[in-house]
Amino acid sequence: MTIRKLFTSFAVGLVFGVGLIVSGMSNPAKVLGFLDIAGRWDPSLALVMAGAIGVGLVAFRVAGQRPRALLGDAMQLPTSREITPRLIGGSLLFGVGWGLAGICPGPALVLLGMGVPQGVLFVAAMLAGMALFTFLERGKR
């Protein structure tokens, strides 16, 4: 693990986080306004996805044609194509949690970085949920 790769990862995290703040994704009220299609709907987050995917489509097309990344590591892209019950069940649980608080994992870390107490509590519960997954699944692998 070179310093250059670590710094790159940190810098990318910074840009990602600034993008979350600029876009409004790190504001739970705005996320809930998007999820509330039966109320007064705020379509903003559809444009966040459109902007991100517009850039991503080009980047992943280029990445898919390269055996290695520019800093030397092998491309580590997921290969699984199976639609499994755990994919759907997990996404359902995640969606319910997202709809309850208006917070998903990236924005949770940004709220933590803002020093928002609710963000700290959410991140602690989220990490506990992830640890629970590891505990439940460890024996099976």
């Binding site: 649980l93 969606g95 917070i103 989220m126 949920g129 992830m130």
Partner: peptide, 9 residues
Amino acid sequence: AGLLVGVGT
């Protein structure tokens, strides 16, 4: 919500 997001994701 945090627990659900953690386990679910």
